[in-house]
Simulated assay, not measured.
Amino acid sequence: MNIYLFQALNGLGVGMVYFLLSVGLSIIFGLLGFVNFAHGALFLIGAYTAMFVTAQTGSFLLGLAASFAAVAFIGVVAERWLLRHTYRMPHESQILITVGLTFILTEGVVMIFGPESQQVPMPDMLAGVFMFGAYPVPVYRIFIFGVCAVVGLGLWFLFERTLFGARVRAGNESSEMLNLLGIKVSRVYALTFALGTGLAGLAGGLAAPLRGADPSMGAEAIVIAFVVVVLGGIGSFSGPLVGGLIIGVTQSMMSAIWPEGARLAIFIVMAGILLVMPKGLFGRA
């Protein structure tokens, strides 16, 4: 029984990383109706950015800040010069363009850092375990949970209590509404894209000490992100949080029960929930 509780606690930490990864994807899709298959590559860049900055400065916190800032900047540039011109295209075209962007970003990482997997050392201040009763919980998992909880509360406040959030919610319903209100839609889109992609970068930076950094992690991340978004409900803010925790705990528990089926289990959970709730847990029609 102890091993299952331990895995469940670990799964909560992983699930919060999935929340950060997928909430940006959900925000972008909810406002822009844009299918961003390059989201996983941005997660990848966030992991390598955190690794590089941490190695150069000795500060993991600076590495995390850089992972958000660098990926948000890439997101703004990509949105301004490329993706903005695809919003009115069919989703199939958006998928092809963002898959192509994924290849470009991934190969850029390979050219700079090489194709081999690289270990990212655990920060000294976050090494060790915390005794939760009789159960040891890695301090870094608690740190991840705390960071993601703070970010989640910040996002809730941003979208529910600020003028920018009101504009995003209005644009979520109708971009024409923003135009009628005299709001510059392109600026709202760019800021939303920067926030959504920056969160993917931060998720990559947090995940790097857990799994290392390698060029294949982007492809794995985009699959997880879409599972979480579809499970939680497309365009929802609460959905990625609940969906990420469900997927994280399921994957972690299955790795102890049936390691070979851990990846399969998340799709079974998604399919089971969608059979009962076709719109996802918090999705709209």
Rank of each mutant, 00 (worst) to 15 (best):
Q94V: 08
A256T: 12
M89H: 08
P259N: 14
L241I: 08
M125A: 13
L126E: 10
I183T: 14
A72D: 10
M270T: 11
H39S: 01
S174D: 11
A207M: 13
V227C: 01
G13M: 10
L181Y: 12
Q56G: 03
I97G: 00
A285T: 12
P259C: 15
F164A: 11
R284I: 14
T57F: 05
F143D: 03
G283M: 07
R187V: 02
A271C: 12
E160A: 12
G30R: 11
A41G: 04
A213W: 00
Y18A: 06
G46M: 09
V23F: 13
Y4N: 05
S117P: 08
A38S: 15
F145K: 08
F6A: 12
R263N: 13
A285R: 15
G154F: 13
V17H: 06
E107T: 04
G33E: 10
G11C: 05
P259L: 15
G283L: 03
A219F: 11
P136F: 07
V151E: 01
L62D: 11
W156P: 02
N172Q: 14
L21V: 06
R141V: 04
A170Y: 05
L195V: 05
I95M: 15
L12P: 03
R169F: 01
L61T: 10
A262S: 11
I27C: 01
V276G: 07
W258E: 12
F52D: 07
R141I: 08
L96S: 06
G205E: 03
G46E: 04
A166W: 09
P123I: 07
A47Y: 05
A149K: 00
S255L: 13
I74V: 13
I142N: 08
M270F: 08
E107P: 00
G204S: 12
P138M: 06
R187I: 00
L281I: 14
I266N: 01
G243P: 02
V99H: 03
E116T: 11
F282T: 10
A262C: 02
G15V: 09
G244V: 03
A69W: 01
T250K: 07
E260Q: 15
M122N: 04
F130I: 09
F19M: 15
L25E: 02
G212Y: 02
A225S: 04
G235S: 05
R263M: 14
S186A: 09
I112R: 15
P121L: 11
L158Y: 13
V17F: 10
P259I: 14
I142T: 07
S67Y: 03
S26Q: 04
E116H: 14
A47H: 02
G239L: 02
G201Q: 07
V188S: 09
A72G: 03
G212F: 06
G218H: 08
L241V: 12
A78Y: 00
V150C: 00
P136W: 04
L44E: 04
G233D: 08
V120Q: 02
G46F: 01
F164N: 09
M254C: 07
